[in-house]
Every structure is written in structure tokens, then in C-alpha cells.
Simulated scan of single mutants.
Amino acid sequence: MGTTNNEESTSQTQKLPPGVVLGPDGKPCKVCTAFRHWKPLKNMTTPKAAATTTTTTTKGPVNSQHTIDPISASLAIASAIPPIIDLPRPDNCPPDVEQLGRATWSFLHTTAAYYPERADPTQARHMYSLLSALPTLYPCSHCASHLGECMKRNPPDVSGRAALSRWLCERHNEVNVRLGKPSFDCNKTDERWKDGPLDGSCD
């Protein structure tokens, strides 16, 4: 009897290093995973490869495999997996989940900062359509699903700039809390996304 999709997914998840996220197809998702987690995944040595060696005899090289003891194999595997650190990210790499998230939040917060004080029906309709499309179109399916659930509990307020800025800030803070990051003061959205710091350091 073959394994079910759930069994295969569970088995694959158990083999993944921490931080690597599976996509809807059951495979590791690059845009759902931070680069620092994805890179070690590509460098991992499999147990089978780490537990075999190629020996050389006096008569020349012999391509035979000899199993080494389990303790040595475990040490070899552990040393072959690099630690999870912030690796330098080449500029020409596709965005990972963190880069995509920062860019998306920057776009949304800035758009809200320049949204009309009182939106007319056309402006409100377009903004609502933009926000409503994200749970369907956002590349990271896990992020999109979470945003969709948040929007069901708290529908977007597109009536004007202040209301939209606060709504986005509150949704962003929900993500921050989920990720263990500090919350942002929603009274400072204009300072952060429109006017700049009061000390003029961005002028």
C-alpha cells in the first residue's frame, strides 16, 4: 500500500531544517522561506552520502563503498550542515519571504500615506480591490492565507488616509507579533511613511 499525500508531506517536513517552509505543492517554497534558511538546505549532505567513503589500495583506486560506524556518520553529517546565519545575499537573487514582505509593506504603507483624506467612491473601490487581491495573488501562499484570515476578521477601512494607515499598521503588527517582532506605534505612521522623523534626519 502506498503512502498518502499527508504521510509524504509529514515525512518530507521532518527532513527539512528549521525555517524551511513547504509550498502548496508539498515542495520547499523559496519565496516562503528566508534566504538564511534556504541556503543551508541546498548545502546539506545526505546521510547516505556522508556514511560512505572511497578507498585507495596499492593496486590503484577502487570505487567501492564502505559503511562507517553510525557515530562517525552522525558527526560527518552534523559538520556538513552549516549553521543558520545571516548569509550574504547576492543582489541578483529572487526575493525571499523577508525581502518580499518588506517591499510589500513599504508599498502599502506608503500608498496609504498618500491616500486622500476622504476617498471618493472610485478611489475607495480601487483600494479595496487592491487589498482584496493580495490573499489570492501574493506569491507566498502561507502569508497570503494569513492575510486573508486577518481581512475576514477585520475588513479594510478604505474611507480615508488616516483610517487606511491605521488599518494597515494594525494588520502589520499582527504579523510582527506572530513573528516575535516588536509592534510599531500606529500613531507614527505619517512620521515613518510620509513626513520623516521630527529631527529632520531624512530631509
Score class of each variant (00 low, 15 high):
Glu98Gly: 04
Ile84Asn: 12
Asp69Met: 02
Ile68Lys: 08
His109Trp: 03
Leu75Met: 12
Gly101His: 05
Tyr114Ser: 06
Ala112Trp: 04
Asp96Gly: 04
Thr111Glu: 02
Tyr114Arg: 05
Gly101Arg: 07
Ala113Val: 09
His109Ile: 08
Pro90Ser: 02
Ser79Leu: 14
Ile84Leu: 11
Pro90Tyr: 04
Ala78Lys: 10
Ala113Arg: 05
Gln99Pro: 00
Thr67Tyr: 01
Asp69Ala: 12
Ile84Asp: 14
Pro83Ala: 07
Ile77Val: 15
Gln99Trp: 05
Ser106Asp: 11
Ser72Ala: 14
Ile71Cys: 00
Thr104Cys: 06
Phe107Val: 12
Cys93Gln: 15
Ser74Pro: 00
Ala80Asn: 02
Pro94His: 06
Ala103Lys: 10
Pro88Asp: 08
Pro90Asp: 07
Asn92Gln: 07
Pro70Thr: 12
Ile71Gly: 01
Pro90Glu: 06
Ala78Phe: 07
Ile85Ala: 07
Ser64Gln: 12
Ile84Ala: 13
Gly101Phe: 00
Ala103Tyr: 01
Pro82Ile: 10
Pro82Val: 09
Leu75Trp: 09
Cys93Pro: 00
Pro83Glu: 06
Pro116Tyr: 05
Ala112Lys: 02
Asn92His: 08
Leu108Met: 15
Ala73Trp: 00
Leu87Phe: 15
Gln65Asp: 14
Pro82Trp: 10
Ser106Leu: 14
Val97Pro: 00
Tyr114Trp: 12
Pro88Phe: 08
Gln99Ile: 14
Asn92Trp: 04
Ala113Ser: 13
Asn92Ile: 07
His66Ala: 09
Ser64Glu: 15
Asp91Pro: 01
Pro82Glu: 06
Gly101Ala: 15
Ala73Thr: 13
Ala103Phe: 00
Val97Leu: 04
Ala76Gly: 00
Gly101Leu: 02
Pro82Met: 10
Pro116Phe: 08
Asp69Val: 03
Cys93Phe: 13
Pro94Trp: 02
Pro90Phe: 06
Asn92Tyr: 03
Ser72Glu: 14
Pro94Gln: 07
Leu87Pro: 01
Leu87Lys: 00
Ser74Cys: 05
Ile71Phe: 07
